[in-house]
């Protein structure tokens, strides 16, 4: 019964073979022009001496751009910061998001209000959040030091964004504030998909609250957790907006990131070729993270 209309539909549409292409062509052309072409160009450019405006004739320079990038101390500062962001934000933010998701998944009155509040930072634009936090972090006029001072009797007084030792930490804290609601929602959707009888079976067997969480919730959330960890890791390497607004990479390059370096080299100094090399390196990092995630998911399903 189902198969005959399906077949009918397909043959009918297949006959006027122009229609599928009319539906597809706008997207295909734009994807080719604005995604595939610049992606291929990024690879090609990265082996040339291309600049935005240059009297020097274009030629291939082999791996020279990559060598330059790998010899640049700022590259290691940037990459180190991106990795530090991964190492701190991925576990902390995921754990916090899971805790929030479990909290707002309870059948308690008014729980929706809390879900709304935890999610609200996600709908604030990152550039705006970074602006507000810049003032919150002000060593003298900011609320954060006001609170720390009141609690510690004036003993704790970090310079936050103005100090090389705390600037990146400050960016990490505000990034978690802004991003955790996003993960919470994804994990919450996963929590709500767990069949209730799993918990009932565990309760019958006398599993404690923690054991239910450890042996029912966590395994059932595996794919959502994997997704959240992957997307957060990728976002960590894309880190740009909040750093651009709050510190522009300073003080003394202590908050440099790959994306700031990309913009500085490719746009600020107009070295298209070297910027493209950074873009290719960035892409390879993202690609390997995605491949690792897909492997892990496939492992689970087989």
């Amino acid at each position: 019964m189902i198969s005959s209309p399906t077949k009918n539909l397909k043959t009918r549409v297949g006959q006027d073979s122009l229609v599928p292409w009319l539906f597809s062509l706008p997207a295909i052309l734009m994807l080719l022009a604005f995604l595939v072409a610049p992606f291929v160009l990024a690879i090609v450019f990265s082996f040339t001496n291309l600049r935005l405006l240059s009297p020097i004739p274009l030629r291939f320079v082999g791996l020279q751009n990559y060598v330059r990038v790998f010899q640049d101390p700022i590259f290691y500062r940037a990459l180190g910061n991106n990795l530090l962001f991964v190492v701190i934000v991925v576990p902390v933010q995921t754990a916090l998001a899971l805790a929030l998701a479990v909290l707002v998944n309870q059948k308690l009155r008014g729980v929706r209000v809390f879900r709304t509040i935890y999610f609200a930072p996600v709908v604030t634009v990152m550039a705006v959040a970074a602006t507000v936090w810049r003032l919150l972090y002000d060593p003298d006029a900011g609320f954060i030091n006001g609170l720390l001072g009141a609690v510690s009797g004036g003993a704790v007084h970090p310079n936050w964004l103005r100090s090389t030792s705390t600037a990146f930490l400050a960016i990490i804290i505000m990034s978690i504030w802004q991003g955790v609601g996003f993960q919470m929602v994804i994990l919450l959707a996963g929590l709500q998909d767990i069949p209730h009888d799993h918990y009932e079976a565990a309760i019958v067997d006398g599993a404690s609250g923690w054991q239910q969480f450890r042996f029912v919730t966590i395994p059932q959330l595996r794919n959502q957790l994997l997704f959240v960890v992957t997307i957060t890791t990728i976002l960590a390497f894309r880190l740009f907006d909040q750093v651009y607004v709050m510190t522009s990479g300073g003080p003394l390059d202590s908050t440099q990131t790959l994306m700031l370096m990309l913009v500085d080299v490719g746009f600020g100094r107009q070295r298209i070729a070297q910027g493209s090399a950074i873009a290719v390196i960035f892409f390879l990092i993202v690609l390997s993270i995605s491949v690792a995630q897909r492997r892990l998911i496939r492992e689970e399903t087989t």
Partner: peptide, 25 residues
């Protein structure tokens, strides 16, 4: 095409921003 679309999801905008900027310039 379906395979290509899924593969293209992996490319972040940041990875093509510089050459795209060059094209637009």
């Amino acid at each position: 095409l379906i395979g290509v679309v899924i593969a293209l999801i992996i490319i972040p905008f940041q990875a093509i921003a510089v050459p795209l900027f060059f094209m637009m310039a």
